[in-house]
């Protein structure tokens, strides 16, 4: 039995190597993120709603929609030449495959997020220098939440008809707690409030991460069986 995390890192590294070579999903997600950020800036009445007021919501809508592009692709890659069968036939555990896919997707989404974050600051004319540690914390917590559930659901929908339609339908309800929490924390941070004001939300995010990452690892095998 090959070491669980060793195998997971191999799988994640493989996904990253493929993405670096093709860059199609990354470029689509990034351009998509920039477009959504720009469109949401105009989707308000400038005389009554300031850009800063909608900024946290805009940021998280952008992040989740862009992440969805990566998640949709995650298992398409394995399905293309039935590579997932090749993975299953090796000695690695199903958990290692799942953790590897989650790590690969996390890397993808984090890069999209940290490339679009400066653009967000620029577009919405914000000053976030003092808030960077807090922002990184909330971005990590919320991204782990939706990438873990999203990877699990992606493994299922890729085997159904209309996979691209099914993923948002099934995933969005699970995004309610992490996205609402992330928006709340982000808006407090952007208003210059300390993190101690949002411990309730951070606890909720942390609890969601622990609960859903654990459950997703346990349930992953059921998405592969046939």
């Amino acid at each position: 039995m090959y070491n669980l995390f060793g195998a997971a890192f191999r799988i994640a590294a493989k996904d990253i190597a493929i993405e670096l070579r093709t860059r199609t999903a990354f470029m689509s997600a990034l351009v998509f993120a920039i477009l959504v950020l720009a469109i949401l800036y105009f989707a308000r009445d400038p005389t009554s709603v300031g850009a800063a007021d909608i900024a946290p919501g805009a940021l998280w809508v952008t992040f989740t929609f862009a992440a969805m592009i990566g998640l949709n692709r995650a298992f398409l890659l394995e399905k293309e030449n039935a590579a997932i069968d090749g993975l299953i036939l090796t000695d690695v555990s199903k958990s290692a495959i799942f953790i590897g896919k989650v790590l690969g997707n996390l890397a993808f989404v984090f890069v999209v997020e940290f490339v679009s974050l400066p653009l967000f600051v620029l577009f919405y004319n914000l000053d976030i220098t003092a808030q960077i540690p807090g922002l990184i914390l909330v971005i990590v917590l919320a991204t782990v939440a939706f990438v873990s559930v999203g990877t699990l659901l992606s493994s299922m929908v890729v085997r159904t008809r209309f996979a691209e339609l099914m993923l948002p339908l099934l995933l969005l309800p699970f995004l309610v707690p992490p996205i609402v929490s992330a928006v709340q924390v982000t808006s407090r941070l952007l208003a210059g409030r300390p993190l101690s004001e949002v411990t309730g939300w951070l606890n909720l995010l942390g609890g969601f991460d622990v609960a859903f990452v654990t459950l997703s690892i346990l349930l992953f095998e059921a998405t592969l069986a046939e």
Partner: peptide, 20 residues
């Protein structure tokens, strides 16, 4: 199998949405 995965996830989601 797929329905069960979703059913179990859904059951866990209820308290989180309520808390949110």
């Amino acid at each position: 199998q797929y329905s069960s995965v979703l059913g179990i996830l859904g059951m866990l989601l209820v308290p989180f949405i309520h808390l949110t």
